[in-house]
């Protein structure tokens, strides 16, 4: 459902639903790695989702809309917000070197160990599907063509930037040296009576493999340096404007017409168009709660003086003599 949203705050909200599902799976399996993974995921998801929502809020503050089909190209005006959002989604998708990878790895280990095929299939599907929905706001809101309406948008204000950057730094930190957090989680687990996690230096011992996040980050750094050297050694590229792009040698002048954002995952959505919608289920619950509220409103907060006096009397009686009446 996150995949089909056009409004990016709702999209991030639905992603929290998906992550909640992961945490539930982790806690339900009950062995050391999975509970540790679930607790780590709570931590990682808290930071990442919060950062993503803050980035979204910064965009709304500057442009006034959350509909992805009206935004676009904001990276050229708000690069730091983009970086915060990027780090948040790398963590949410479970990609190293961020904290989300650690928790996903631990949960997958115990799923495989216990041989839970169908849960694992659903978890894999969710994990890969999360690439889809986290990528969409990145591409539709920050990348792509800058609309002429947003030419004068400025970067988010400093007071908004500070918490966002703080959250990103924490996510990065726990991705590179997670054992600090995992040490705390270990103590939580042993105090609950579950076996602890096997940690050794910077490594995490899984049930069928070993993970060393610091090593991964270092090697990723080495790879990046090699790529950077390769890039710098070769001739410098010429900078061109954003509208100066391949249009099959035709001409176009409106940036909005060149920005692909609406109905992004159209083919995928068409596949499950006919399935019953969870959204309609939520809407039914919403309506029922509303009715309940209205009923309560009629019963307790009505304008008729008789009802009000009745309730005041009831409350006074129960406050003064409730204890005696109950026992």
């Amino acid at each position: 459902m996150a995949i089909r949203q056009e409004d990016f705050k709702k999209l991030i909200a639905y992603s929290s639903v998906a992550n909640g599902g992961y945490i539930l799976i982790g806690l339900a399996m009950g062995d050391a790695l999975s509970v540790g993974g679930a607790l780590m995921h709570i931590l990682a998801h808290a930071f990442a989702s919060a950062a993503a929502f803050l980035a979204a809020a910064a965009v709304v503050h500057r442009t006034g809309t959350t509909k992805m089909s009206e935004l676009g190209g904001l990276i050229h005006r708000m690069p730091l917000t983009y970086l915060v959002y990027l780090i948040a989604i790398i963590s949410m998708a479970g990609i190293p070197p961020m904290a989300g990878f650690i928790s996903k790895w631990m949960m997958f280990q115990s799923m495989i160990n216990n041989g839970m095929i169908f849960t694992a299939a659903a978890a894999f599907f969710g994990s890969i599907g999360s690439f889809l929905y986290v990528f969409r706001p990145l591409s539709a809101v920050f990348l792509g063509q800058l609309s002429t309406k947003h030419e004068n948008v400025k970067e988010a204000p400093v007071l908004m930037m500070i918490p966002m950057m703080l959250l990103s730094l924490i996510t990065l930190f726990f991705g590179v040296v997670p054992n600090i957090a995992l040490g705390v989680i270990n103590r939580v687990q042993t105090s609950l009576g579950l076996p602890g996690l096997a940690l050794e230096g910077t490594k995490i011992m899984g049930s069928n493999g070993v993970l060393d996040p610091t090593l991964i980050t270092i090697i990723f750094g080495v790879g990046f340096v090699v790529a950077l050297i390769l890039f710098i050694l070769h001739p410098k590229s010429r900078k061109v404007g954003l509208m100066d792009t391949y249009t099959a040698s035709e001409f176009i002048w409106t940036p909005e017409l060149l920005h692909y954002a609406h109905d992004f995952y159209a083919p995928f959505e068409r596949l499950y168009n006919k399935a019953p919608r969870t959204e309609s289920f939520y809407r039914i619950i919403e309506r029922k709660i509303e009715e309940l509220g209205r009923l309560a409103g009629h019963a307790f907060f009505s304008y008729k003086p008789g009802t009000v006096v009745f309730w005041i009397a009831m409350v006074t009686v129960s406050l003064l003599w409730g204890g005696a009446l109950w026992s």
């Binding site: 990276i75 050229h76 690069p79 983009y82 990348l143 991964i216 090697i219 990723f220 750094g221 080495v222 790879g223 990046f224 340096v225 090699v226 790529a227 950077l228 390769l230 890039f231 590229s237 010429r238 900078k239 061109v240 954003l242 792009t245």
Partner: peptide
């Protein structure tokens, strides 16, 4: 030709990750 820093940075990040 380059379209901005994310265009170049993305390529380097991709190549770095694959090399790792």
């Amino acid at each position: 030709v380059t379209h901005g820093w994310v265009y170049d940075f993305g390529v380097m990040m991709a190549l770095g990750g694959i090399m790792a």
